[in-house]
């Protein structure tokens, strides 16, 4: 499994577009979900993923093939997400399609995705990394440069909020 990925990465490093597309196909879906969970906006998520893959391609030379690719990739993804959020905060004007999405939300059923949107960024991020990406608490701590206990605490609070909003009946 890792060998195949390593081979693809070596080929991509040499400029092989087909190999890079295969890496994209493997990671893009989850990357979009994660970026959406953090930015709460489809268009921003797409921009984050675009910038992430461009950075990955341009910096493949600095990737250490002796280490796992996934954490390296997600670190870039999270940095790009945060960069975009910081930029958006400066703008302080919500994107037009975000307003559209919010309007659409008010007319439909409240889903997990919408409840997730109501959490703050810290809680959304840990929850996404844990349940969408399948990272362990230790891995999340490494990725976010946090103490494992902080990750545990954020996960606990995030789950609690989700549970309150989804409703106890869901758990029974």
């Amino acid at each position: 499994m890792f060998d195949k990925e390593g081979r693809l990465l070596r080929k991509a490093k040499k400029g092989d577009q087909r190999a890079f597309k295969k890496i994209y196909d493997k990671y893009a879906g989850y990357a979009l979900r994660t970026a959406y969970a953090i930015t709460k906006n489809d268009s921003d998520a797409s921009d984050v993923v675009q910038e992430t893959f461009i950075k990955v391609y341009r910096h493949l030379d600095s990737y250490d093939p002796g280490r796992e690719f996934k954490p390296w990739f997600y670190r870039i993804l999270l940095n790009e997400s945060r960069r975009l959020l910081a930029k958006r905060k400066k703008r302080e004007i919500p994107a037009e399609d975000e307003l559209f999405e919010r309007a659409a939300e008010t007319s439909g059923d409240t889903g997990v995705r919408e409840i997730l949107d109501e959490l703050d960024e810290h809680h959304r991020t840990v929850l996404t990394l844990k349940y969408l990406e399948g990272f362990s608490e230790k891995e999340i701590a490494d990725l976010l440069e946090l103490n494992v206990n902080t990750v545990k605490s954020r996960l606990f609070k995030a789950r609690k909020k989700m549970r309150e909003r989804i409703g106890g009946a869901d758990d029974e």
Partner: peptide, 20 residues
């Protein structure tokens, strides 16, 4: 929670192609 999160964020194919 995991199942519903995955289900509700699953419709990404179009966005994936467009981003690529």
């Amino acid at each position: 929670l995991e199942k519903r999160l995955k289900e509700e964020t699953d419709n990404m194919e179009k966005q994936k192609q467009e981003t690529w």
